[in-house]
């Protein structure tokens, strides 16, 4: 495992402390920290200046509960003021326990109810393609327990069957699904059986995450299963 070297990453701890967190979801929040960091630091072609640019990459946080890590990364990268972190879910706050795209610059979807992000991601990928916008990629972050929701499987089957090329799903696997995803291939197999390419990585290893996120093929949707320690 490579040690994080980017300077901004070390600031995340302090910013997370400023967020008066959602205790119930705190473990989940931190499980996404490294994946979200690598996305914004090394993968996504989006900046605070390009949040409305049609040519930007899209990051859709489908797993909208426990967005502390997401907010912290958005603050480090300059999408939102750090001061916003001090009043999480307050009456005047733009940051809640589930993000609202109309309140937070750079947030692509409002999420919180599980199983909505991948369908929106499929539609976003289709909408870009229909307009001849071929450079951006659509990244959707889900949780392993979120995969229980049937709506995901409508999206997985359709994206695979139609070879949707500009979509990457990331499943943060902290083994929180009540009945798990047993059998050969685990979570990745639920996608590959439908025609996706897949990579399973250590969800704390930045170089491995980066390699997996950039391993998509030109004519298929891609999934990265990022495994972290089970939630306590």
């Amino acid at each position: 495992m490579t040690a994080p070297t980017t300077t901004g990453y070390v600031d995340l701890d302090g910013l997370l402390r400023r967020l008066t967190g959602d205790e119930k979801h705190s473990a989940s929040a931190h499980s996404t920290l490294d994946v979200v960091w690598v996305l914004y630091d090394r993968v996504l072609r989006v900046t605070p200046e390009s949040v409305d640019d049609p040519e930007r990459d899209r990051f859709l946080l489908s797993k909208g509960h426990g967005p502390a890590a997401y907010y912290a990364v958005l603050a480090v990268k300059g999408f939102i003021p750090e001061a916003w972190l001090d009043d999480l879910a307050g009456p005047e706050s733009r940051l809640g326990h589930h993000p609202d795209r109309l309140l937070v610059p750079g947030v692509e979807i409002s999420s919180g109810s599980l199983g909505h992000g991948l369908g929106l991601g499929v539609g976003t990928a289709l909408g870009l393609r229909a307009q001849g916008i071929t450079q951006p990629r659509v990244y959707v972050l889900l949780g392993d327990a979120e995969l229980d929701e049937g709506a995901n499987h409508e999206a997985i089957a359709y994206a695979g069957a139609t070879d949707l090329p500009n979509l990457t799903a990331i499943v943060l696997d902290n083994q929180s699904a009540t009945h798990g995803w047993p059998g050969p291939g685990g979570i990745a197999s639920r996608f590959t059986v439908n025609g996706w390419t897949a990579a399973t990585v250590d969800g704390r290893d930045h170089d491995a995450i980066h390699a997996a996120l950039t391993a998509h093929q030109p004519d298929q949707p891609h999934v990265v299963a990022a495994v972290v320690d089970p939630r306590k």
Partner: peptide, 18 residues
């Protein structure tokens, strides 16, 4: 296909792209 949850989700995504 016969996927009505996805049908609306896709519509939402299309609308997000304009």
């Amino acid at each position: 296909g016969i996927r009505e949850q996805l049908m609306i989700g896709v519509a939402g995504g299309l609308a997000l792209t304009g």
